[in-house]
């Protein structure tokens, strides 16, 4: 579960986030929509404790991120626009490394192969060095890391931008699976179509504030686009 209470972040005079209140429960895919600079990435960085809040609290599983960042990161998985891996290590080695760093020493080589199979990475790719991987393959390893970490909450920052439609679709299917297993997922995205298809709830941000929240089953795709554009003007 992810929770933001009156979360504020200012850089000098600039208010990146003006008092955000947000809650993502297990089994939810919450899609943050908004133009660049609306505060989506700042929100994710606050949950990751990559930046410290000016005021307010961010909680993961009920624990204040700022008070115990190492503990809250145990529950989190982070998948950015471009999952960054070590080019000279194989997909398997990258996965094992990050899993161990996430506190999971218990897996066997078969387990790691299982994770990579589950996210749809070709069998022969697992033993290849990551520098030969396409972007889609890297994103899949990112999801495999989240699986291995048994993350209770996922923070996704435009994870599908730049992916071809097939890869994007496969990625979304994985998210839906994780959701059905009870993960709380917060995803910043520009893809209204994906947000409507895979998201359960949608929040529209503008100028560091959440200006509207809605459930995806309440709106049609056309309505969502109209509402979004209204807010952007």
């Amino acid at each position: 579960m992810l929770e933001a209470i009156d979360l504020k972040k200012t850089y000098g005079d600039y208010q990146a986030l003006k008092g955000l209140n947000l809650r993502v429960n297990g089994g939810d895919i919450y899609c943050l929509l908004g133009a660049n600079g609306a505060g989506k990435t700042t929100t994710i960085n606050l949950f990751l404790n990559f930046v410290t809040p000016t005021s307010g609290v961010a909680r993961v599983n009920g624990i204040d991120v700022n008070a115990d960042p190492l503990q809250t990161k145990r529950y989190l998985a982070y998948i950015p626009e471009q999952v960054m891996l070590y080019g000279n290590l194989t997909g398997m080695e990258n996965l094992e490394y990050f899993a161990r760093l996430g506190g999971h020493d218990e897996y066997s080589a078969d387990d790691y192969r299982g994770f990579l199979r589950r996210v749809g990475l070709q069998e022969d790719a697992a033993g290849r060095r990551v520098k030969t991987y396409s972007k889609g393959m890297r994103q899949k390893v990112g999801v495999a890391i989240a699986l291995a970490k048994q993350a209770r909450a996922l923070l996704l920052d435009e994870p599908t931008s730049g992916l071809d439609p097939k890869a994007s679709n496969e990625f979304s299917e994985l998210l839906v699976q994780l959701k059905s297993e009870g993960a709380a997922i917060l995803m910043a995205t520009h893809d209204l179509f994906r947000a409507k298809e895979t998201g359960t709830r949608i929040g529209i941000m503008r100028g560091g504030q959440l200006v509207q929240e809605l459930s995806t089953d309440e709106v049609s795709h056309a309505d969502l686009e109209r509402i979004y554009l209204e807010h952007m003007h």
Partner: peptide, 14 residues
Amino acid sequence: ETGTLRQLMSMGVS
């Protein structure tokens, strides 16, 4: 520079 540091730090490593 390659961005792996963010990934790394998101794992909960001190």
